[in-house]
Write a protein that binds this DNA or RNA. Structure first.
Lengths: 157, 157
DNA sequence: TATTGTTATACTCTATAACTATA
DNA sequence: TATAGTTATAGAGTATAACAATA
């Protein structure tokens, strides 16, 4: 049995062992920025999800942000009471609520997102340009892959 | 107030919004590989931490892997019962246990790590070379930063 | 019968407090 | 008294089950 070829790249920590702690740090870094606007992480995720276009049901929203439908109810309650989102009963199906941002919600989303971008820019400035653009490109590419492709690549995807 | 300059890079999802789900997927992708060797994620993390050199106390190990000292006890119990690690009482201070891998533990670590690398290689093969090397470089750079530098970059670090 | 939204419950993971044995 | 390891307990976050309203 020969020693397999090892590229220099192989002498590194496992991907998840680097990615997960960095993700935790990013979350921790965003937290005070969001808290300054009275937003929890889930509340911000909801604002982001509704920013592009309204969503027809709470279940669809939960699905889109990979959350449990029971988990976002209190988040939606709070956002609604603060006038940041609207829950309009669908006249054609009174079971479901059309979810959309109010003007105040749109503004808060833009403000919070801007704060997060400033934070991210400061962090990314510590990376050499090639790493910075490679990271952003790789994250975009990986984000576009399905769960199956991410968790079992090369096995019939 | 003018519209601020926006580079094309700014038209993307938030870093954490991409990094955290990818980290979860990587963890999920590793899980069956580890389970095939009877290893939990924490058990694997312990093997990795002990692979380079023994650790003098359980508290120091917990610290090194960012775990609570109470959390790794059952993991250590299991690894010890399976003959993968040794807990040798320190003769000079019988409160503490020197932790080290047995030969079987070293072998299992190498085997599991190799399986994980194969998985990661298949996934990384889906990335263009520049993204792949940029990602690995960026993850290494970011991993080397302190918590303070990651969560509050540019504010006196 | 199935689905939307909701509430109540249980489960998992993690952290805190309290104990023992050594020092 | 302080520390290493352990056990027991409590807390946060999450998912599951059960319910009422509507289709």
């Amino acid at each position: 049995m020969n020693t397999p070829d090892r590229s220099p790249e192989d002498d590194r920590r496992d991907l998840a062992a680097m990615m997960v702690p960095i993700g935790r740090a990013l979350t921790a870094g965003e937290q005070p920025i969001l808290a300054a606007h009275g937003l929890s992480m889930w509340a911000y995720v909801v604002l982001v999800a509704l920013a592009d276009e309204p969503v027809r049901t709470q279940a669809a929203l939960a699905d889109a942000i990979r959350a449990d439908k029971t988990r976002i109810i209190q988040v939606l309650d709070d956002l609604q009471h603060r006038g940041l989102i609207e829950r309009s009963p669908d006249p054609s199906d009174r079971r479901s609520h059309l979810l959309s941002l109010t003007t105040a919600g749109q503004q808060l989303h833009r403000t919070a997102r801007s704060g997060i971008r400033t934070y991210e820019r400061r962090l990314l400035d510590r990376l050499p340009p090639a790493e910075r653009s490679g990271l952003l490109g790789a994250l975009a590419t990986l984000s576009s892959l399905s769960w199956q492709e991410l968790t079992a690549p090369g096995s019939g995807d």
